[in-house]
Amino acid sequence: MTAVLTIAGYGLREALRRKVFVVVCVLTAAFLALYWLGARYAFHHVEGVVPPAGVDARTFAGAFLFGMAMFATLFLGVVLAIFLTLGTVRGDAERNLLQPLVVRPIGRATLLVARFLGAAAVCVPYVLILYFAGMLLTGLEGSWWPDRIVTPGLELAAGVLVVAALSLLGSVFLSSIANGIAVFMVFGAGLVAGLLGNIGHVLNSSGLIHAAKIAAWAIPFEALYQDALRAITEKTSGLTGFLLRLGPFGGAEQGGIGLRLWVVAYLVIVGAIAIAGFARRDL
């Protein structure tokens, strides 16, 4: 246990020195400032808009904006998670930093788990803070609050943990830069799959919907994100709800308990593959 805390703390201090947190803080502040401005203008305009019959302009604007904030939250959380984990094994081994730690009795599996927990200890609070900050800005500017308050935030955090696990797995086999690129590409592919799923729903194309569903479950941060988007307008019905679900920040996929169990299993499987790969690796 001491060893886990030691390694987790070591990883975070290393990140601190590499200015990871500075970069993320600057990006976060910039995003929140822009978002606040955007929300202020958008809700101001909505006052004067006469929407089509059956559409509630304020709800539409609120859900759309907050959906965008959730995307940004996921994105920034993913950036942080990747920066914290991308060089854990091969990157640090190539810099000759890893070997002195690995030969200590703690063992390779503990080291990986500790680095994952260290990243989680930073990313989960970060995502939640950003999520609630976005919600607060939307609510204060437009008096709109999501239908579900807590669950979507937790789902975003879980999505970021999935990416952190994939990045740790990648770090066993790829050097830092290659791993960073690969994980970002997987992340992008997941988002594209989600958008294709939305389009599939519009076109009523079962093939597209099916493909997007498979992709969303193969990299379940996407399914979590979709479910989180769905949850914020869960009780919004009629044309407003329909239109929201079509948009880029609309969640068409429903997750449920099956998704949550799968995410837990997924983390365990990814972790097991990473540990097995690390155990076989010459350093």
């Binding site: 020195r17 000759n96 002195p100």
Partner: peptide, 26 residues
Amino acid sequence: YLAELFRFPGWMTADELLELHQRLAG
């Protein structure tokens, strides 16, 4: 063990490095 090519984190002091390894070595 001391490797032929090794690197310790530049930001750590000598004392901190030894303390880290004390914890890892129990």
